[in-house]
Design a protein around this nucleic acid. Structure first.
Length: 567
RNA sequence: UGGGGGAUCGUCUAGCGGUAGGACGCCGGCCUUUGGAGCCGGCUACCCAGGUUCGAAUCCUGGUCCCCCAGCCA
């Protein structure tokens, strides 16, 4: 039995587990998920998959809820700026955690209590080995580890030492608290993992009240348990942490027993997805910030004009499975085009203007022609567009010596101006010194006006244009996303940024757009006829309109992959 | 090499013993007063080898390849 294309929501293995648990009455039939980012960077398209999954599963199950939890257990990398940005992005994507916003750092006291419990149960001990010594004791993939000489400290000594770790008696690295599990375990995560480390660093939320911080392996399962999470969905690399996750929850005797389920993280071809590398780009000022439209961050995608709807449709389409996968970046852009095609009003914009004079059109005359806002959506209405004797067309739409497949304007040829008349090119004016074409002389046929008697006359092409005296100057940025020249993995080298295609931004500032765009509200998505999808920059200063290109030109992909210019 | 996972069109994904389906992509055609829009058609897949079975992507056995793990990151 195959999924019909109309099937409302797909069924993946995680949803099957959740459904089975509900049917079996596990967790009293509740479904509680969580999205647990560490606030050490901005969210990107990869996080969108996890957000859609966790919030999606909660929404699909009656009474289901999804928590937003900041996994802020490492004070050295975290920042309130990121906490805010994460919330903005999740909301922008269209999800609501209601009052379920949590912070792992709020659990520090309880976590400490659990640690004391483990010590009392002789399941945790204070180790005083150096990091280097501890690494040596851990063994290797094939050799078992050897117990630390401090492994057999008494409960009293451990309790005393741990308390003094907390009170700040010891410098960073002097001691750690470790779980006492099995130094010979074939699973290295079980060779007495570190539960607490000393870090004399102020935490952005708890300030100086703590100088010991719980590790992920300790804090995460317990945070899940504290919040009553039923299904703790995470990525594949945590698969062999699961025995440890279960051990912590079991040994701490929590009333809730969450279940960890792993899925494959999202990779997008040619796209930089690691937070570390994105941070690198931002810090080295290779981009203008986390919201640079060339970045795959949610902020960057938003600024390019990607819609939350398109991103959600994409996440739905890629599915959830356990195999390593690299989704083609074209699939992402497909969903953006599909969405924007339905909703983006069409407007005329000339990126590289070429002046055209209609010789037989009366000097000083102006006509208001009627343009359709969106042929895909009649309810979008119509608008007037002024036509006059002097126009701009795009340089691309004229060739002095047209090649075989070129059907647009050329000397002696005719072409339709969208919503206006059929014109014929009768002359080409060049700069005498450079030989550059500076102006075209044309004539128009008054009977061929849109809706006029000869309106049905066939011409080979329709081009876009703007009236020169009415045109608005605009800045148009043709972005391509910051692409790697390698489809998936970046080779390990000194500087990974040498694998970036540097030709990802072109600003065109002589652009002329139709007068209706003199004022557009920030964030407005538009389709420039014959050119592509654009977004009025949400963050640009008022004044000259600034538009960011939303999706990359289809023909550009091949060049991007080769690291060639795409403009 | 120890442990944990994974292998289905070029890409992602469905399949749960009974005709391998969908989407992206690509190719071809049509249409159009924008198209990168729309319509029509086509393309290509079960990692390998055995076995069980009337019948195997699915079950069994043995291989192969890929990913993850030796942070006081998450």
């Amino acid at each position: 039995m195959s999924n019909s294309p109309e099937s409302p929501s797909r069924s993946d293995f995680i949803r099957e587990v959740v459904a089975a648990d509900r049917a079996a009455g596990k967790h009293a039939g509740r479904v509680v998920t969580r999205f647990p980012p560490e606030p050490n960077g901005y969210l990107h398209i990869g996080h969108a998959k996890s957000i859609c999954l966790n919030f999606g599963i909660a929404a699909e199950n009656p009474g289901g809820v999804c928590h937003l939890r900041m996994d802020d257990t490492n004070p050295t990398t975290e920042d309130p700026e990121y906490v805010q940005a994460i919330q903005d992005d999740v909301r922008w994507l269209g999800f609501d955690w209601q009052d379920k916003l949590f912070f792992a750092s709020d659990y520090f006291e309880r976590l400490y209590g659990f640690a004391v419990l483990l010590i009392k149960k002789q399941l945790a001990y204070v180790d005083s080995l150096s990091a280097e010594e501890m690494r040596r004791h851990r063994g290797t993939l094939t050799e078992p580890g050897t117990p630390s000489p401090y492994r057999s400290r008494s409960v009293e000594e451990n309790l005393d030492l741990f308390q003094r770790m907390r009170s700040g008696e010891f410098p960073d690295g002097a001691h750690v608290l470790r779980a006492k599990i099995d130094m010979a375990s074939p699973n290295i995560n079980l060779r007495d993992p570190v539960l607490y480390r000393i870090r004399h660093v102020a935490h952005y939320r708890t300030g100086a009240s703590w100088c010991i911080y719980p590790s992920y392996d300790f804090a995460h399962p317990l945070s899940d348990a504290i919040e009553g999470i039923t299904h703790s969905i995470c990525t594949l690399e945590f698969e062999d942490h699961r025995p440890l996750y279960d051990w912590v929850v079991e040994q701490c005797e929590t009333s809730q027993r969450p279940q960890q389920i792993e899925f494959a993280r999202l990779n997008v071809s040619f796209t930089v997805m690691s937070k570390r590398k994105l941070l690198d780009l931002v810090e080295r000022k290779l981009v203008d910030g986390w919201d640079d439209p060339r970045l795959p961050t949610l902020k960057g995608l938003r600024r390019r004009g990607f819609t939350p709807e398109a991103l959600r449709a994409f996440c739905e389409a890629i599915g959830v499975a356990k195999r390593d996968a690299v989704v083609e970046v074209q699939l992402l852009e497909h969903f953006v085009r599909e969405d924007l095609n339905k909703r983006a009003p069409r407007v005329m914009a000339v990126l590289r203007p070429l002046r055209v004079v209609i010789e037989n059109y009366p000097e000083g005359q102006v006509e208001q022609l009627e343009a359709v806002n969106n042929p895909e959506d009649p309810s979008a209405g119509r608008r007037p567009v002024p036509f006059s004797r002097t126009l701009y067309i795009d340089q691309e739409d004229f060739r002095e010596n047209p090649p075989k497949q070129f059907f647009r304007l050329a000397p002696g040829r005719e072409v339709r101006l969208r919503y206006a008349y059929i014109i014929t090119c009768v002359g080409v004016i060049k700069d005498p010194t450079t030989g550059e074409i500076t102006e075209l002389r044309c004539t128009y046929d008054p009977d061929t006006k849109s809706g006029g008697p000869q309106a049905q006359r066939k011409v080979k092409a329709t081009i876009h244009w703007v009236s020169a005296p009415h045109a608005v100057d605009a800045e148009v940025r043709l972005y391509d996303r910051l692409m790697l020249t390698d489809p998936g993995k970046i080779p390990v080298e000194d500087d990974w940024t040498t694998h970036l295609n540097p030709h990802s931004l072109e600003r065109l500032s002589a652009c002329k757009v139709e007068p209706s765009l003199a004022t557009v509200s920030p964030g407005t998505r538009l389709q420039f006829e014959r050119v592509g999808y654009f977004c009025a920059d949400p963050d640009s200063a008022p004044g000259k309109p600034v538009f960011n290109r939303t999706v990359t030109l289809k023909d550009a992909w091949a060049r991007i992959e080769k690291g060639q210019p795409t403009g």
